[in-house]
Amino acid sequence: MERPDDPADRRSINDDLKAQWKAKTSPKERVRSVLRTVYDGLRADEIAEKALVAESTARKRLEQLIEEGYVESVSRSNSRATLYRRSPESLILEEAHVLIEEHTRQELAETVSQLERELETFRVEYGTDDPETAVLSTGALSESTGNEVLHDWQSVRRDLQFHRVALAVSIAEDDVMQSIA
């Protein structure tokens, strides 16, 4: 998987760091690290290349990660190959867990309210719940402004979901434990 040095016989920082990453982590860690943010789906050979492992190693680790619920396989109508991506459920629960660790319930509730208000502002301004529709149908926006609105709106929507789940899990945990006590 190693790339040869470039023709000028100078070792690039990028290649040095690939070697360093490889030396300091196990193949399993690297496959997991790559999959952590694969949202659209990649083929096993693409994952192998990114994780600096052999394809057979990637396939073995992918099976384990599917078993753990960390990864799921998906198929696309336009591709015969199996694609792998981060399991949305594992992603959402992991993010909720981190937010609960780092914030009080009061803070989570305030952030949910704040992001809901921001989302409402977009909805009122553009007359739709869907950022993609708003940007495509609003001829008045320049391309760069449209991209900025889309990015901000999508960011608010995504982060709101993580905070909502964190708040719900935090409340549910207490109620469940109280009912046992």
Partner: peptide, 24 residues
């Protein structure tokens, strides 16, 4: 200038970046 990033901002990626940077 953050206005032209494609796709929403990603907490998961930021934590991954933080961990890798602090490690080295």
């Amino acid at each position: 200038e953050s206005h032209s990033l494609r796709g929403p901002r990603d907490r998961v990626a930021l934590r991954e970046f933080k961990t890798a940077f602090e490690r080295v």
